[in-house]
Each structure stands twice: as C-alpha cells, then as structure tokens.
Write a protein that binds this DNA or RNA. Structure first.
Lengths: 136, 136
DNA sequence: AGTGCTGGTCTCTTTTTGAGACCATCAAAG
DNA sequence: CTTTGATGGTCTCAAAAAGAGACCAGCACT
C-alpha cells in the first residue's frame, strides 16, 4: 500500500513547510562564520584593527595564546583573506600582520558584537551566577 | 649593577606604552565572547531568533549537530542568560527553548555579522581559492 | 664562546567534540 | 497485548583540536 509512502511524503512536506524550507546544513554563511569564530580569531582581528603587529608583538599582546595557535590562527585568517602577511628582510627577518580591506570590512560588524559584550558583560555574569545558584 | 634591572624596567614600560596599557588577558569581553562564539551557538541563537523551538525541532533543523552538543550548547546559552528553557507537562514531556530579552538584544549585532557573511561569502571563498592555489 | 631575539615547527598530553548506544514513559497501531 | 514510535535526554568510547614545551637556524651583541 502507499499508505506509508504518502505518510512519509506528507511528513517531509510538513517539515519543509514548518521550517520555510530553510536548511541550516550546507549553508555558506556557516562556512564563513566558522572562519571568524575560533577561540582566538576575533581577538587577533580586533588587535590588528588597531594597527599592524608583528608576530612577537601579538604573542606578547595576548599572553595566554600558545605560539602554535598563534601561527595557526593567523594562517587561517590569511587564508580567508582577512589578514595580510608581509616578511621584511631584516636580520633576523621580521613578519608583519595587518588587516586587508576585507578584514577591515568584516571588523565593522564584529566590533558591534564586541561593543555589545562590553556593555552587557555584567548582565551575562549575573545570569551565570543566578543559574549556578539555582543549580545548587 | 642595576644595569640589567633598569633595562628590564624600561622594557616593560616601553611595552606598556606600545600597547597603550591594553591587556587582552583577563578581559571580561573575551569571557562573554567565548559564550556566543562556539561552533553551534550562533546558529542556534539565529534559529531561536525566528521563533521558539523544541528540542527535537532544533535537532531536525540542524541535521549535523549531535544530540550531545545540542544539549550542551543549549545549556550554556541558558546559563549565559540568552535562552529560556521551559518544560511542558505533556506526555511525553516537551521542552521549548526561546530567546530571552538579553538573547534578543545580543542577536542584533550577531545578525549584523551573519549578514556580512551572507554578503561576502563569495569574497572569502575566492580568497581561500587564491591562497590554496598560491600554496600549490 | 655564550646569550638573546627573530618566527616558526615538532612532539606529547590534555581537553573538546562527534558517533552512537541506552533509558523511562506514554500513545497509538497492529 | 505486544510492538513501534516519539519525547528529551545521559553515558561511553573514539577522534579531533588545543595547550605546553622542546627544538631550530641565522645573525647581532658582548
């Protein structure tokens, strides 16, 4: 019988209707968001938005990043086109990282989020305290 | 001699001057940013911004999230005060998740970032392709 | 000859994430 | 009356990612 088939079909249609056909998988936005969503990416972009920095300067500026993650995160940011990497033939050679136009463009909305965090971190801390108290 | 000590002190002062005293460690903004910066958090907040959803609906809406990470991420979002969790005594009991006022407030700048990603994902993909080609 | 600064890489351990089995309860189907 | 399915989870184990720290080459200064 087609009973089951019809049922299944209608379920799929109902589901698609419910979600307005929006499927969050295979979404390019997710893919791009991941790139600026790492643990260190927003921090480094914010630092570089102020002015270009050299590798060692960034390491000192963000004391709790490991050298390994600094290398890796800068590499990813460079790959996504947010950061420009330039090597100067000094001795020892120095490497300067700076934001590209794309990076500066991305920093505009990112900074909005940072500002929100700045304004509302009290509220978030209170929410956490209240939640933890309720659990106990 | 104090030679070395003076040198060290001046280095610290030079460093603080260079960075304008900004220390990115122990920054409350970082702490708050981490909360909305996970792999799944922005996605779930975006979904819940549209309308409240139940646990199973979210799982179907985001097919590639594991049940474990869905539970955990919603729990963190609830702890940070972005999400409200309500259990309805139906049989079987159903659980609805919705954004709080704080969550809706946070979604405003988050959505700016999502829109940027929507507008610029082509540029990012091109940057990646160019970078990968240059490496080869 | 020894020390330090440069920007990394390599290895090892710990933490985080993903995949999937399992659970209790009740409704409807067969 | 037994099976099947949906509810929202938790638990365990494997895989992936992140952190800690050693190591490296080249050159300057002492």
């Amino acid at each position: 019988m087609d009973g089951k088939i019809v049922n299944l079909k209608s379920k799929i249609e109902i589901y698609k209707a419910m979600t307005n056909g929006a499927n969050f998988a295979d979404c390019p936005v997710r893919d791009v968001m991941q790139g600026m969503n790492g643990k260190w990416s927003p921090l480094l972009v914010t630092a570089l938005a102020e002015k270009p920095y050299r590798f060692g300067e960034l390491r000192r500026l963000v004391p709790d990043i490991s050298q390994r993650m600094l290398t890796q995160t800068l590499h990813e940011l460079q790959r996504d086109g947010y950061v420009h990497r330039e090597v100067f033939p000094t001795k020892p050679p120095s490497v300067e990282y700076s934001l590209t136009d794309l990076g500066r463009s991305m920093f505009v909305p990112l900074y909005q989020l940072v500002q929100w965090a700045e304004l509302n971190h009290d509220a978030v801390r209170e929410a956490r305290a209240a939640f933890d108290a309720a659990q106990a």
